[in-house]
């Protein structure tokens, strides 16, 4: 083939390729890359009541947001939240997957029941949790059940001490997402070859717990890691349930949100209520760094186990 023929063909391939990929590349450029660059620019600029950077201010936004006790508190809060949510979700969703897998009949029904909260939104679940289940009045369901055991009604949401709102916030997220991760674990379980269990039985691995310890859990490691990563990133970006369970009329960071404000709610309030987009963007990048660090630390922890077990 001649040199020019090759070049013509190469150019035609490039044209075909871009006819397929251009819409995605263009969209990602506009709606993902531009915001990242614009956000970085904003974070180093003064941009109040305007989305355009007006003046370069160096690290001022970063220094301001890092010295803000409310923001630092929100970071601590979301770390605690993630520490409750990630192990809780891993344990519960794995348990559900194992339980459903162990049933001789009715697998489909149970799986549907545990999976169906995936269809519910955080807003609707928040309404149920706040208005009915954990209503602070004696008529709230949790208080009614407590009443049967002779307990006085408690304010689940509205008080700092004891911080019962943690229970409300953690259970709503668990209910909404545990079934989702159960499905992922179920897929992981189905990939474990049955012969391994038979071989183990010959090697005197008899009870369920030994099977779990020596076969199931080690072979689910990759599934566990990916579930933990998605779950962690999700927890760090918690917004909906905090905003809707702790929020109040008028929106923003009033009412019970002063008890527990995660970073995204805080950024929402400074960017869209306070109209300080420079500060909001700086906070966004700080949060990104925190998420990346924790994801790496978690990966390291889960990866270290691998070294010990082998």
């Amino acid at each position: 083939m001649t040199e020019t023929g090759q070049r013509v063909r190469r150019r035609r391939t490039a044209r075909t390729f871009w006819s397929f990929v251009a819409p995605m590349a263009l969209g990602v450029t506009i709606f993902v890359l531009t915001p990242i660059v614009w956000g970085l620019t904003l974070s180093f600029s003064s941009a109040q009541t305007t989305i355009r950077p007006t003046r370069f201010v160096g690290l001022a936004n970063y220094l301001q947001i890092l010295s803000d006790p409310a923001f630092r508190h929100s970071l601590v809060l979301v770390v605690v939240f993630a520490l409750l949510i990630v192990p809780g979700t891993l344990a519960l969703s794995l348990c559900l997957a194992l339980l459903v897998n162990a049933t001789p009949w009715g697998k489909g029904i149970f799986r549907t029941i545990f999976f169906i909260p995936t269809a519910c939104s955080y807003v609707v679940a928040s309404a149920v949790w706040r208005m009915s289940l954990f209503n602070g009045l004696p008529t709230g369901l949790a208080n009614r059940v407590a009443g049967w055991f002779g307990q006085d009604p408690v304010a689940w949401i509205g008080q700092l001490d004891p911080p019962l709102y943690w229970f409300v916030l953690v259970t709503v997220r668990l209910w909404l997402q545990v079934g989702f991760y159960m499905i992922i674990f179920t897929a992981g379980l189905q990939e474990i070859p049955q012969e391994l269990y038979e071989a183990a039985r010959i090697d005197r691995v008899r009870n369920v717990f030994q099977e779990l310890r020596y076969i199931t859990l080690p072979l689910l490691r990759n599934t566990t890691i990916s579930v933990a990563v998605v779950c962690l990133i999700g927890a760090f970006q918690a917004f909906d349930e905090f905003y809707n369970i702790l929020g109040s009329a008028g929106g923003g960071a009033q009412g019970n949100l002063s008890l527990a404000m995660p970073p995204l709610v805080y950024l929402y309030s400074i960017a869209f209520r306070g109209q300080n987009y420079g500060l909001g963007s700086a906070g966004g990048f700080v949060l990104t760094i925190v998420i990346v660090v924790f994801t790496l630390v978690q990966g390291k922890l889960l990866g270290l186990n691998r070294g010990q077990n082998n």
Partner: peptide
Amino acid sequence: KVFLLLLGTLMVPSAVTFVPTFAV
């Protein structure tokens, strides 16, 4: 190269860039 470039954007959590996305 194009694929890896696109994939790299998954590293940045979307909810975190919601302020500058609002600007766009």
